[in-house]
């Protein structure tokens, strides 16, 4: 049985169709990189999987259960979410924020107990920000803030973690810190990760590190390709779907064998279509 199974899913905002007939599945410890240009419907697909948006057609199964029959609480016990943008309001401390990850395990009229606090602290420790425990999260840098969100998603004790463009606003170093943490979590906790991203190299990153990685390019309401990064992220496909001339470079690092990386070179001009 697959942890997540998406079967023929379509979604529309009123009459405006966004997703059509999307099908894929993922198992425990796997990575799914959802790649696509801005506005292609990546976030919409993630929202459908979390049960936030109602499907127009098709079914989504979590652990074999159709999400239509699941309550928000039951979905949240399997899937946790790291938002792309978190709108900060009140200056809660890092600990208070991460503790909120326990909500799906706590009744409506209850508050977290000591065990929940321990789980939250453990989550904070596993992303390496224990020193920020009592700091107001509104004062943190972008990278630290993202780690807080990951810790909160982790405190939820999910089987699948969904991250919506987790490195968008981060510099090189912080991006790698986030990717590194995600990679370790997948290995250590057998977590499955689905991430939406603009960066093709994220897919290579996980594959290079020996994780079972799937990637799909979402364009024109559907997956134009779906498969292993090294099979589908080719020069031809990048040319075809992104209008970009690129090179895939391969190099050998010390500990690992072949490492792949993609470099965009320049925009391509298609016949009859000016790309400026």
């Amino acid at each position: 049985m697959n942890l997540l199974e998406v079967k023929g899913v379509s979604f529309a905002y009123a009459q405006n169709s966004v997703l059509e007939n999307i099908t894929f599945h993922m198992g425990a410890g796997e990575v799914f990189c959802l790649i696509g240009p801005n506005g292609s419907g990546k976030t919409t697909l993630l929202d459908c999987i979390m049960g936030i948006l109602p499907l127009k057609q098709g079914n989504i199964f979590l652990n074999g259960n159709n999400i239509i029959g699941l309550k928000a609480k039951q979905i949240a016990q399997i899937v946790s979410y790291v938002p792309q943008i978190h709108k900060k309001t009140f200056p809660y401390t890092v600990e208070e924020i991460v503790l909120m990850g326990r909500a799906s395990h706590i009744g409506m009229f209850n508050s977290p107990n000591n065990n929940d606090i321990l789980i939250a602290q453990e989550a904070i420790e596993s992303v390496g920000i224990t020193h920020l425990l009592k700091r107001p999260y509104t004062e943190l840098s972008g990278g630290e803030g993202q780690l807080v969100m990951i810790a909160r998603a982790l405190a939820q004790k999910p089987k699948i973690m969904i991250l919506d463009e987790p490195t968008t606003y981060l510099d090189f170093q912080n991006s790698l810190i986030i990717l590194d943490i995600i990679r370790k979590l997948i290995k250590k906790k057998n977590l499955s990760v689905m991430l939406a991203t603009h960066y093709l190299n994220h897919a290579f990153y996980f594959e290079n590190n020996g994780l079972s990685t799937l990637t799909a390019i979402l364009n024109q309401k559907n997956f134009v390709v779906l498969g292993r990064p090294s099979e589908i992220l080719t020069r031809q496909n990048i040319d075809k779907f992104f209008n970009i001339e690129s090179r895939i470079i391969e190099y050998n690092s010390d500990e690992k064998k072949k490492q792949k990386y993609i470099i965009p070179i320049r925009l391509l001009k298609k016949e009859g279509k000016d790309v400026v």
Binding site: D47, M50, G51, I52, K71, A72, K73, Q74, I75, A76, Q77, V79, S80, Y81, P83, H86, K87, T89, F90, Y92, E96, M100, G101, A103, S104, H105, I106, M108, F109, N110, S111, P112, R152, Q156
Partner: peptide, 23 residues
Amino acid sequence: ALRWQINILSMGDKEAQALGIDN
């Protein structure tokens, strides 16, 4: 009795639901 749920609601609708709250 509801006081801790208010923390979660203050994260906004989408996040609150993703955290498992019936908004």
